[in-house]
Structure formats: structure tokens, C-alpha cells
Amino acid sequence: MGLGLTSNKVLVLAVLSAVLLFAGTVWLWPRLARRSLRAVGGRVGLLLATQVALFAAVGLAANQSFGFYASWADLFGQEKDQGVVVDHTPGGGPLEVVGSRRVPGAAGVSARAGGRIQQIDIVGRTTHIATPAYVYLPPEYFQPRYRTRTFPAAVVLTGYPGTASALVEKLHYPRTALELARAGRMRPMILVMLRPTVAPPRDTECVDVPGGPQTESFFARDLPDALRTHYRVAEKPGGLGIIGNSTGGYCALKIAMHHPGVYGAGAGLSAYYKAPIDATTGDLFQGDKGLRNRADLWWYLKHRPAPDTSLLVTSSRSGESNYKDTMRFIERVEATGRTRISSIILESGGHNFNTWRREIPATLEWMGGRLNGR
């Protein structure tokens, strides 16, 4: 790997540099104790160099542990290769998707021409969970010839803790959907963008927590009901899909598998396949073994009937810690013979926005091909 970002050699060099600069600062400090301009400049230079080396070492160590960036190009946002969807059903093949171009902003553009993004608050009728969201309505939604038409919709989830606005401003979901529809690459689609953290600051992992937030029920029942009440969203089955990255990716896969009659497709970008238990989640299952097993997608595939739904998973050969699990998950789903599975596997890409931006155009096109309007 040479001196790549994730190379152990780079980490060792950074640590050695920090140690040597610290030792050099201690050794040279008495000689730089004078009040001359040169001495002051030397002290400032040594302190600055030591701190930079220290932060670099800590950052490289954290990156190796969590896989935020796969390479120097990934770190500086220079990875541009777009994701390719591979359909793992018999007869499936690669579908190459061209990267998104910048679409002019909506300022000064009518809803009929550029669509509209609404900021709303959603309150669950049965769970009483309240959470903010952004809703993207495509331009066709406002055009007279489509006034009686219903539209497919995709719920889009952030990671944990995440901010819903990042789905609009950093991951560019509405802009990408608008461009793909204009290019004829997918049908116009409503996007409902929010974070899975509906009971902040707790990470509920989209679980119905005993005595706590009924998060899965919110996404499986309350949210779809609210959308169909207030927007022209296509009726089930097949009118609603769900997408997410990281924690949101796990949620998307799980909810699509648990509720195939509600969600016709689920896409997990950089997802994992089993709910963690840590300081952010607390005790999600309260000793309920059945609930814990149900939240484990490995267990679910082995012990429950295969759901009639379509799934998409993503990873990268270099940079993502979920690569081996993702390949194993594809094999497990293929073995069911009923659940349909597709994937986007990048050569290189870390657990970050730049990677997901490369996967989102292909993901939206895939989703659009599996949902129905009217």
C-alpha cells in the first residue's frame, strides 16, 4: 500500500514525528527562552509543529479505526468514480450511472420548473413520536397535467446522529433526483428526508424499545400514513421505498425486510447488519431475546421467511469496514431465492459524504426502477 492514508507506515511516521518534535521542544526550550524575535519565532514554530504532528497522529489512528477516508484522494474529495449497480438476481448485470451535474438552485425558480423543498414536522398518530423532516416534491407534482397523479416516494435517512439538512445541502438528494428525472433516468419521485434519531440524543437503531420510543412502528406505520394523508403518494404495495446511510442504512434494510407490504425496496449505503449496544443506544431490548433476534438481520434471514422485497447494499473494497459483511450478506440473501439483492461496490471509498455522493445517483435510479406511481 506504500504511503497511502491507511498505511501503517504513515501512522508510525506520524507518531514518531510527534514524539520527536515533543522531545525536541523540551530539549530546545531553554535555548529559546530569550526575548529576541528569533527565539520567539522558534518557540512558536516548535509548538505549532508539535501540535500539528500530534493531531495528525490522532486523526490517522481514528481514521484507521473507523474508516472515514480510504485514501488521500478520498480525504481531499478527489474520488469521483460513480457507483455501478450490480443486480445479483439471475440474468442481472452492471448498470453504469453517470455522475450528477450541478443543477441550478431553486431560488427564483417556480415549483413547476424546479420542484419544491418543504420543511415539516411529523407527529406519529400511534407512537406520538415527533420529528422534523424535509420533503422534496418534484416539479411534476405542481404541473396541471399531473394534478390527479400519485407519485412514488422514498424515505431517506441520515446516519447517527446526523442532521436532516445534510441530506439536502451536502448529499444533494433533491438536486440529484431532479437531474435524473430531467435526463429520463428515473421517474419523478417524492423524497422524505429525516434522521433516524427520532428520540434525541438516544440512538434507538429503529427498534421498538420496550417502555421507550416505538421507532420501528413510527417508520413502518405512522410515517407512511402521514405521507399518504398529506401528499399524493402512491398506495402500497410498491409505492414507497426507504434509503439510508450508516445507521440509516441498517434501518432501511431492516424496515424493508420486516415490512415488505409497506416498503417495496430498501437501500443501505455503508450499512451494518446487526444493532449495536453501546453508550448511545442504552439497553434497546430490555432482555427480550425475541426482539434482539428480530433486529439481527443475519438471524432474520436464517429463521424467518424470506421477505418479498428488493434490497440494495453498498461498500468499497478499500476503506469501508463493512466490505466482508456486505459480501456475506449478499450471499445470504441470494440463498433465500425470494428476496432480491443488488449492490454497489466501489474500488475505494471511506465512510463519508464524498463516498455516499458517488453512490446516490445509482441508488436513486435503482430505487426509481422498483417503485410504482399510478
Rank of each mutant, 00 (worst) to 15 (best):
F55D: 01
G349C: 11
T215E: 07
L95T: 14
R185Q: 14
V262C: 10
R187T: 07
P200V: 01
W29D: 08
G349N: 11
T355S: 15
R43F: 04
L46I: 01
V207Y: 10
P201K: 06
A113V: 13
A252C: 00
D121S: 13
G159L: 01
L32T: 02
S316M: 13
N245Y: 07
L157W: 00
N63R: 15
P30Y: 06
L75Q: 09
F22R: 02
R38F: 11
F142H: 09
A57E: 01
P152N: 07
I129Q: 10
N293R: 14
E179F: 00
A335F: 07
P361D: 05
G244C: 02
G115L: 09
N245T: 11
T215Y: 01
G124W: 06
L240Q: 10
A14N: 03
F22W: 07
P174E: 11
F329V: 06
L137T: 08
W299R: 03
Q51I: 02
G266V: 00
R317F: 09
G4C: 13
S342A: 14
I341D: 05
T336I: 03
G24R: 00
Y250C: 05
S165L: 15
P237V: 10
T127D: 11
I117V: 15
G184F: 04
A295H: 09
K289C: 00
G99A: 15
R195H: 12
A256E: 05
N293W: 08
